[in-house]
Write a protein that binds this DNA or RNA. Structure first.
Lengths: 151, 151
DNA sequence: CTTAATGATTGACGTATTCAACGGATGTCG
DNA sequence: CGACATCCGTTGAATACGTCAATCATTAAG
């Protein structure tokens, strides 16, 4: 199956704009969304990346750094810097792994959980804006579809 | 509307994992998707960014660089480099704007259109993989939802 | 004609991403 | 036990990316 050609031999590209490419749409949505989110989180001096790690650090059981890095699709070396920042703020702490003393689990402190709660509420405003064009049902639908292709 | 709190004062974070955040899901989908796409396009020595610009250069009427930069949410200075790369390959050419000689329109050459057709077919394999968990209907649904929040 | 505004470009700066390498800690197999 | 391969976190370098101000040519406005 080859694409139709114009009379002069050049392949036609009509009817195949970028706006039909899921990849492009997701990149754009992600880019615009995190820009807006970063702006919102700026007042807590948090970036989206740090928020993500903090969120994981709040979950139970607390994840190790490799778990964080694979979940967030980040290089392990990047996680180091992010955790450093959060740790210096007293939002998380590194604990030696329970069964493996090589690993370190990232656990949110009480302050960290308070920070997360604030950030989470700010972020929900931001995503509400981003998804304003959709009804609540459609937002759930979108979440479900995205969850199925990423998890 | 504030989140519920635990008896000892620490805000609860249970039931609000990262996997419910549309922002996180989109970031992850976008990241994984473009990684896979870049891998596929590597054999044409093309990156997703270049592909996007090439796609726009194939459309009619040919866009100016500022139009490209605003559509792709990129700084104008970044577009320069991408277009340079494509131009040196002979895939696109810069033409002086019709009504405004400051602007330059980016137009795909015949070679560029052939390259785009190949790239587009490779990329469709990649996105088919990425979206394999969804039915054709659901893929359309996802596209529609994303289109409505980004355009 | 003067002035302001715009499109493309360059260069500078900070941040991200990717990789290779290292030290400490397990686990395995002889 | 002891040699070996593996894995975790960390560091540092190389590279790409994003953001911003400054510039030149061109256009629009006063």
């Amino acid at each position: 199956m080859t694409p139709p050609s114009t009379p002069d031999g050049e392949p036609s590209t009509a009817g195949s704009p970028l706006t039909d490419e899921p990849l492009f749409l997701m990149a754009r949505a992600s880019s615009l969304g995190s820009a807006a989110a970063n702006k919102k989180l700026a007042r807590l001096e948090l970036k989206v990346r740090q928020y993500s790690v903090l969120a994981l650090a709040c979950s139970d059981p607390a994840p190790t750094q490799t778990e964080v890095s694979s979940f967030l699709v980040l290089d392990p070396s990047q996680v180091v810097g992010i955790v450093d920042g959060l740790e210096q703020r007293g939002a998380v702490e590194r604990r030696p792994g329970a069964h493996d003393r090589r690993s370190k689990t990232i656990r949110a402190t009480a302050d960290g959980r308070r920070l997360f709660a604030e950030a989470r509420s700010l972020l929900s405003e931001s995503t509400a804006d981003s998804l304003a064009a959709l009804t609540a049902e459609e937002q759930d639908q979108l979440n479900e579809l995205l969850r199925r292709i990423t998890l």
